[in-house]
Design a protein around this nucleic acid. Structure first.
Length: 480
RNA sequence: GCCCCCAUCGUCUAGCGGCCUAGGACGCCGGCCUUUCAAGCCGGUAACAUGGAUUCGAAUUCCAUUGGGGGCACCA
């Protein structure tokens, strides 16, 4: 019987949750859910210098937004220091590790020299075989040591990655890395190995940037006498310049996508498709199907560029698939925030419900809703008079069209879509205009825009009074 | 500099020796629909990095080359 699948997402709380990390989290979560296993959240807060207050909460909020629920945690490595210390000291005792008293300054100088000599930078093993006497001297001088792993002198370290297959490193290309820092905190290498073992993690699914430090982890497992987990390195997400996506590209936090009006289900679908595919044609996949069909085997080896154009398209697809009420509720906060101040708040929900269906299929992002519906919510329209004059029309016949329209519309008892259409289509012919011309004039008069939802529906929602008022105003504007 | 990984349309990808005169999607271009804008529908543009080898047969296997990326901290 094989152990139940346990995966973990182990971010460090050093900033906002970036999309690259989130994509990894999605893979971890999906695999756990697919296998009926557990997904664990672990916070790797071992670098006290870089900790950003609030980052943990932001990370969790990002996970929740995407619907990635965790079964255990968050565990905090800062609360488990004794475990790492014990492991490190045990390794020293057993000869797998040693205390190092070299100063950061000396190490930095050494590195510079190595680079200058075009040699691979790495620890020169000065403290590898200190005598008891030398150690005592350093201790007496009050120098706090780090603990370094004693990498075997010869041989190779090989492991099999689920995605990349068998990978081999010569041990002599790996330097004696630090496991425990002088402040008593572990480095990533030690902490993740100790924790992954303690938490019975079966599959370490993480970004490809970790591939080259994996032999260190294997070495650590061997020295500790633990069975290593299955390693699954996932391809990187790249910026437009094809280098690893980072702040440098203006890479955004997952929560910023929420602010920009992306739907979490679209984001999930899009992100999972960077580096994974179901088959040769599926693009839109539901969360349930993702869980049902997700397999590690279909993760690709090649890193991929984050293509915002495709995300926008996909978000539009998801927006259109929402039922109207759902769309309305999701758009509401964006309206509250994005509509100009003169729109009176709180917004009239009943009215919003009538407006939203008119724009649902016209937006790709929820942030576009306010601009597209502004004229429904503000009283004063601001547009140049010339905008009223449609293609191949003159000031004169535009005025005439507006005058006649105003009169006829004012005689209407009902103001619904059908009634309006039945009045206006024949009217265009009567005025000797193309329907497009008349509608264009009225559209501008009534909305101040040239691109809007369908005219009759728009007018019906605006209501008779407001339409007549705006047409009158348009006439004035054109006369002056 | 050293180590590791990767290599199909501009981008995301399918392809795991013959089904490939390489399929899908985004974008782009053209058309249809149409009161504008979208949406929708139809069509088009566009790729196996290069050179060897294996094989009856290679996008698929192997080896070089080239190119790209990642790593080489008391950061993760």
């Amino acid at each position: 019987m094989t152990a139940p699948v346990r995966t973990r997402f182990a971010p460090s709380p050093t900033g906002m949750p970036q999309v690259g990390n989130m994509r990894t989290a999605i893979f971890d979560w999906l695999f756990a859910r697919h296998c009926g296993g557990k997904f664990i959240l672990r916070i790797e807060d071992t670098d006290r210098e870089r900790i950003v207050p609030g980052a943990v909460e932001t990370i969790m909020e990002g996970l929740r937004w995407l619907g990635l629920d965790w079964d255990e945690g968050p565990y905090f490595q800062s609360e488990r220091l004794h475990l790492y210390k014990e492991a490190a000291e045990r390794l020293v005792r057993e000869g797998y590790a040693y205390y190092c008293y070299c100063s950061p300054e000396r190490l930095e100088k050494m590195r510079q020299e190595q680079i200058a000599r075009k040699q691979p930078p790495g620890y020169d093993r000065t403290c590898r075989n200190l005598t008891a006497r030398e150690r005592a001297d350093y201790e007496a001088a009050g120098i706090k040591p780090v603990i370094r792993f004693r990498v075997p002198d010869g041989g190779k370290t090989t492991f099999t990655d689920t995605i990349y297959g068998e990978v081999t490193f010569e041990n002599n290309t790996i330097d004696d890395f630090v496991m425990l820092k002088s402040d008593g905190y572990p480095t990533y290498h030690l902490a993740s190995v100790v924790d992954d073992h303690a938490m019975k993690i079966t599959h370490v699914i993480r970004g490809e940037e970790w591939l080259s430090s994996t032999p260190r982890h294997i070495l650590l497992y061997q020295a500790l006498g633990y069975e290593p987990p299955q390693y699954v390195h996932t391809p990187l997400i790249l910026g437009p310049d094809r280098s690893k996506l980072s702040k440098r590209h203006g890479a955004k936090s997952i929560l910023e996508y929420r602010e920009e009006g992306y739907l979490p289900e679209a984001m999930l679908n899009f992100l999972v498709l960077i580096g994974w595919s179901l088959d040769d044609k599926t693009e839109i996949i539901s969360r349930d199907d993702l869980i049902k069909y997700f397999t590690l085997e279909r993760i690709s080896k090649t890193s991929a560029v984050f293509n915002i154009e495709k995300l926008n398209w996909m978000n539009g697809v998801y927006i259109r698939s929402l039922n109207v009420e759902d769309f309305t509720m999701r758009a509401l906060p964006f309206l509250e925030k994005g509509l100009p101040p003169e729109a009176k708040r709180p917004l009239d929900i009943a009215y919003v419900r009538r407006v939203m269906p008119l724009v649902q299929e016209r937006v790709k992002k929820l942030t576009e809703v306010p601009a597209l519906t502004k004229f429904f919510f503000v009283e004063t329209l601001d547009y140049p008079a010339e905008l009223l004059i449609a293609k191949n029309m003159t000031r004169q016949n535009t005025l005439h069209a507006l005058e006649v329209s105003l009169k006829r519309l004012s005689e209407l008892a009902s103001f619904d879509e059908t009634v309006l259409e039945n009045l206006l289509r024949p009217l265009a012919e009567e005025l000797g205009l193309k329907t497009g011309q008349l509608f264009s004039v009225l559209r501008t008069a009534v909305t101040g825009e040239t691109a809007t939802p369908p005219l009759f529906q728009t007018m019906a929602v605006l209501g008779k009074d407001r339409c007549l008022r705006r047409i009158s105003l348009a006439l004035e504007k054109l006369r002056n």
